[in-house]
Computed example of a mutant assay.
Amino acid sequence: MHDLEHKVAVITGAAGGIGRGMAETFAGAGMRVVLSDVEEAALRSTTAELRADGAEVHAVVADVSVADDVSSLAESVLRKYGAVHVLCNNAGVHTGSRPSWQSTLDDWAWILGVNLMGVVHGTRVFLPVMIEQNEDAHIVNTASMAGLLTGGSLYGATKTAVVSLSETVHLELVEGGWKPRISVLCPGLVDTRIYLSGRNRPSRFPDVGPTPSGWSVDEARRAFKEYGVAPRVVGEQVLQAIREERFYVLTHPEYGEHIQHRTRQILAGENPTLLPPPGA
Rank of each mutant, 00 (worst) to 15 (best):
V33P: 03
T12R: 01
A14R: 10
I11E: 14
V33H: 03
I11G: 06
M22P: 00
G28E: 13
V38N: 14
M22R: 02
G21N: 03
V10I: 14
H6V: 03
E5N: 13
F26E: 01
G30A: 10
V8S: 11
G16H: 07
G28L: 10
A15N: 12
A15H: 07
K7Q: 13
H6E: 14
G16P: 00
H6N: 15
A27L: 06
E24C: 11
D37M: 08
V38G: 13
V10T: 15
T12I: 07
E24K: 09
A29F: 02
E24S: 04
T12K: 12
F26R: 04
A15I: 12
A14D: 12
M31T: 02
G19E: 09
L4C: 09
M31R: 00
V34E: 10
V8M: 08
E24W: 01
M22S: 07
A29G: 01
G13I: 03
S36K: 04
A14S: 14
A14F: 08
A29R: 12
T25W: 00
G30N: 08
L4R: 10
S36V: 06
A27P: 00
G30Y: 04
V34Y: 10
I18A: 08
H6W: 02
K7C: 06
R32A: 11
T12M: 08
V8Y: 09
G13P: 01
A14H: 05
E5K: 15
A15V: 12
A9H: 03
A29W: 01
R20L: 15
T12L: 07
V33C: 10
I18S: 02
G17T: 14
V10F: 05
G17Y: 09
A9L: 06
M31S: 04
A14C: 10
D37Y: 01
A27T: 03
G28V: 04
L35C: 09
G17Q: 13
E5P: 00
G28K: 06
K7H: 09
V8A: 12
L35P: 00
G28W: 12
T25L: 01
L4A: 07
A9W: 02
I18Y: 02
M22N: 03
G13D: 07
G21F: 00
M31Y: 07
D37T: 11
V10H: 05
G13N: 10
G30Q: 13
G17N: 11
A15Y: 05
V10C: 09
F26D: 02
K7Y: 04
A27K: 07
G19M: 06
A29H: 05
L4N: 03
R20A: 15
G16V: 06
I18G: 05
G13T: 12
H6F: 02
V38K: 11
I11A: 15
S36H: 03
G21W: 01
I18P: 00
V10E: 11
G19C: 01
G16A: 14
A29D: 01
S36Y: 01
G13C: 12
T25I: 00
K7D: 06
T25R: 02
H6S: 11
T25M: 01
R20Y: 04
V33F: 04
I11N: 15
A23L: 06
S36C: 12
A27W: 03
R32I: 13
M31P: 03
G28A: 10
L4T: 12
A27E: 03
G21H: 03
T25Q: 02
L4D: 09
V8R: 14
M31W: 06
E24V: 08
G19F: 00
D37N: 09
V34G: 14
G13Y: 02
F26Y: 15
A9E: 07
A29K: 14
T12P: 00
